[in-house]
Design a protein around this nucleic acid. Structure first.
Lengths: 251, 251
DNA sequence: AAGATTTGTGTTGTGTACAAAACATGGCTT
DNA sequence: AAGCCATGTTTTGTACACAACACAAATCTT
């Protein structure tokens, strides 16, 4: 399990911005976030506060804050007096998320082309390279993660934090959608090649890039939303212990 | 409904009913939210937990939850061990917010046109009517509020919750931007007429509506950020205010 | 007198305790 | 035996208390 997050993730930049907690909260948040987005915790899994509190070695207060934040991001669902569960996006939610991604990711293309520099494009190509490596090695989880990272990193070229943060949230929700309705073998972006859009961007072809992105996102959506499955109960304990162990060991 | 009290109008709708304990949180959130976006609380205002807790008649725990949520929406700024203040958007943040609005509001136009019905358009025209009334009556605050409502309601026609919620956040942040950098004589910022875009939408003119929206949002941005105060100037003013206050012997 | 250190005050961060609500279990009625 | 109500258990919601930190004033040092 290579866990070499390139710190493009939510955590790094948010120490300075509005939603800040102490370092410990951040670490817990990142762990739970990763556990959900990487599908170590299946949608529907109950997340009892004291269980989490004990697992992470803190009190319920801190856990509540983290759960609250994840609820704002629609990654967990909190119902009154009924606690938190890993969110299970509905089909409409899934459609909304992908439609929103089409609007946002196609909409930023002009700015992306305008602000693209060789250095930034190289950084993006590096993500694609690692994505290919993960695919070649059969690491589907990492490939999906890097695919999402690519989309977010591409949008960040436009240098618009509001857009980038929103898209990051959409991408993480996409992971949940894939976890909930995903076809077993559908590697999300396998049909298409992320390098293609980079070439279009490098050549300044705004309309070409926009069209590519539109087709790409429609492909992804098609490969996912078709199948509907029933959620299943699962071993919360083992996964949670693993998460907590990583939490202690890695920090 | 402009409340004109110098101190915060807190606890107005507090003791309504007692069924859901979370309803109280919602009420507190709504009050603070309204106070911020309607500019009853100026950007930079400190929001001490104890004060708010006492004012609303709850403990700090509930207040913290509300403040966390507002921080997530970028309406308040929480710094570690330093408490919460009403957010002061930077110039770049302001630009990002408006650029994001252009992308989103223009991007949803096709869906809006597709899903527009006479009933929904009538509801939108009703908002415009109330907006005109507020303007005619000189109620600038209400007019600004309804203008924002119009943009959000228009986007909601597309029936995409992710997009609509994101735009609602952008619009509320726009109010903060206006409060921070707004022109003193911003009564003149109503160059454009919201009914025009409704006509375009009713006639199914997607490109016309998109172009209108793009121009409209650029107009709004120009009327606001144009008065761009330098960050140094802002800091200087704050420092001077502080110095003057101490000179008068306050605090 | 100027700078640095210490002390004081207030605010926030975190843990814990208690109350209320939901959940699960078992006995009772029909 | 099946369904329903009552009771006990678990989990969440809220308040409270103490510790940690930041900011400011006052004292000490040179």
């Amino acid at each position: 399990m290579s866990r070499k997050r390139s710190s493009i993730d939510l955590g790094a930049m948010q120490s300075e911005e509005g939603v800040s907690g102490s370092g410990r909260d951040e670490a817990i948040y990142r762990n739970l976030y990763a556990a959900i987005v990487e599908n170590h915790l299946e949608p529907g899994t109950k997340l009892p506060e004291d269980t989490l509190a004990e697992a992470f070695g803190v009190s319920r207060t801190s856990i509540r804050k983290v759960l609250q934040r994840l609820a704002y991001e629609r990654l967990v669902d909190i119902r009154l007096n009924r606690g938190a569960t890993v969110a299970q996006p509905t089909v409409k939610e899934a459609r909304d998320v992908f439609a929103a991604r089409r609007i946002v990711e196609c909409g930023v293309i002009p700015q992306v082309v305008a602000k693209a520099t060789p250095a930034r494009l190289d950084a993006l190509r590096d993500i694609v390279r690692r994505e290919h490596e993960a695919e070649a090695r059969g690491d589907r989880r990492e490939a999906i993660f890097l695919s999402g990272e690519f989309h977010v990193a591409l949008a960040r070229v436009a240098d618009n934090e509001a857009i980038a943060d929103f898209l990051a949230g959409l991408v993480s929700r996409s992971s949940l959608v894939i976890a909930t309705y995903g076809a077993p073998m559908a590697g999300s972006c396998r049909h298409s090649e992320h390098n293609d859009v980079l070439d279009l961007i490098a050549s300044g072809d705004v309309e070409g890039a926009r069209g590519w992105m539109e087709r790409h996102l429609k492909d992804v959506e098609r490969s996912v939303v078709l199948v509907e499955e029933e959620p299943s109960a699962l071993d919360l304990r083992k996964v949670l212990d693993e998460v907590a162990r990583r939490h202690r060991g890695e920090r």
